[in-house]
Design a protein around this nucleic acid. Structure first.
Length: 104
DNA sequence: AAGGTGACTGGCC
DNA sequence: AGGCCAGCCACCT
């Protein structure tokens, strides 16, 4: 059975949901916590990222997700996420490490 | 079993 | 700052 896969997915979604509003994390950071590769995390998000705040998951360079970036921008502004002048996420301030939440 | 693909990352030009 | 290349891991055909 694909219980292991389901659990993996749930773990990824849990990490995303664990990200506080106004903060973001990267695919690689999640991948480092839940295991597997960053591509798998992205794949999981694309298939199961609907009910979770996927906009809090961004790329390592601070760019918003490849899809719905316009919608994401609205959420960032609404949640007060640290953005840079270019409309991209200010990783230095907004980055939240799922492996070290007490650094918050 | 083998090859191609992808919501990634880091380095180089 | 933006585009291209190579490496990476798991999934799908």
């Amino acid at each position: 059975m694909d219980a292991a896969k389901e659990e993996y997915v749930e773990r990824v979604l849990t990490c995303v949901e664990s990200v506080p509003a106004g903060r973001v994390t990267t695919y690689g950071a999640i991948a480092a916590v839940v295991g597997g590769g960053p591509r798998q995390v992205g794949s999981v998000m694309s298939h199961h990222g609907g009910p979770v705040p996927w906009w809090r998951v961004v790329r390592a360079d601070g760019s918003p997700p490849p899809c719905h970036d316009g919608e994401a921008a609205a959420h960032y502004r609404e949640e007060g996420t640290a953005l840079t002048g270019a409309g991209r996420i200010h990783m230095r301030e907004a980055f939240w490490d799922p492996a070290a939440p007490d650094e918050d």
